[in-house]
């Protein structure tokens, strides 16, 4: 059989087109679509932090590290607590040693002693993933390894993440890091394995002062939703357009 090059190229082209046709009969579902299809409508997880109640004990950080298997002594963490000391000369001193894991027992801030008489105000601010409505980290993931579930939580697929770090760069809140053992992007999941089973997150359970609460924002009778609807709450860095879903009571203008 004789076969010219032109003929070969022609047949190769039509063969590849023919081969790809059956593939297009299938629709690719994003992980978020799959999750939504399995029935999470009616739920949108939201978080409420009452900074007035936080005493900076660090139990939430401890609990989170243990629950989510983030190496205890590694200087990275899914949630952390920041201490703010504003002095009478309007200067703000901030620290969060080991993410506030061991509490704030040392009055020195990064080695600097501040005389109690100079202090105008001081407070603690717990931080965690804002599970944004419009998450920048999901937008920039080149392989779709990080995704938003139907009930609004942003998760990472540890088996598919390539570890490029683009999501870490894209998050304005600095909540992401590389897991020291798994070597992939890691972040707060609102303890998705717990809240999906009717439990509280580890940090909410560990907080003895009620500074942290989680709730369903679509349920108007949810105590958390009620507070968010009726009281004056703030979010962090709304100028980035990410629409964060962690709400703060008593947020000071000095909070970064």
């Amino acid at each position: 059989m004789s076969c010219s090059r032109r003929k070969l190229l022609k047949s190769a082209l039509s063969a590849s087109v023919a081969a790809s046709l059956p593939l297009s009969a299938f629709r690719f579902l994003s992980p978020a679509e799959c999750k939504a299809a399995t029935g999470t409508e009616g739920t949108r997880w939201g978080f409420l932090v009452d900074t007035n109640k936080c005493v900076g004990c660090g139990f939430c950080v401890k609990a989170c590290k243990k629950e989510n298997e983030v190496p205890y002594d590694a200087p990275v963490t899914r949630t952390w607590v920041e201490r703010y000391v504003v002095t009478k000369d309007s200067k703000t001193h901030i620290d969060s040693p080991m993410g506030g894991r061991d509490g704030f027992t040392d009055p020195k801030i990064r080695g600097e002693e501040i005389a109690p008489a100079d202090i105008a105000k001081t407070f603690f601010v717990p931080k965690l993933c804002n599970q944004c409505e419009n998450p920048a980290c999901v937008q920039v993931c080149p392989v779709g390894a990080t995704y938003q579930t139907g009930d609004g939580v942003v998760l990472v697929d540890r088996k598919w993440c390539i570890g490029c770090g683009y999501c870490i760069m894209a998050c304005p809140y600095g909540v992401r890091f590389f897991h020291p053992v798994h070597k992939v992007a890691e972040k707060c999941t609102f303890c998705y394995h717990r809240i999906s089973n009717g439990q509280q997150t580890a940090c909410v359970d560990a907080c003895s002062f009620g500074a942290r609460q989680i709730g369903n924002l679509l349920d108007q009778n949810d105590p958390v939703t009620k507070i968010i609807m009726t009281e004056r709450v703030a979010v962090l860095k709304d100028e980035y357009g990410t629409k964060p879903q962690v709400f703060y009571l008593g947020l000071d203008r000095n909070v970064r």
């Binding site: 920039v140 080149p142 392989v143 390894a145 598919w160 993440c161 390539i162 570890g163 490029c164 992939v184």
Partner: peptide, 23 residues
């Protein structure tokens, strides 16, 4: 050389997520 999971580098070709500039 920069990827934490270099063996999965090919995933960019398998499941490109086009809202990402890297995809």
């Amino acid at each position: 050389l920069h990827l934490q999971q270099p063996l999965r580098g090919m995933n960019v070709m398998f499941t490109p997520h086009f809202t990402s500039a890297i995809a």
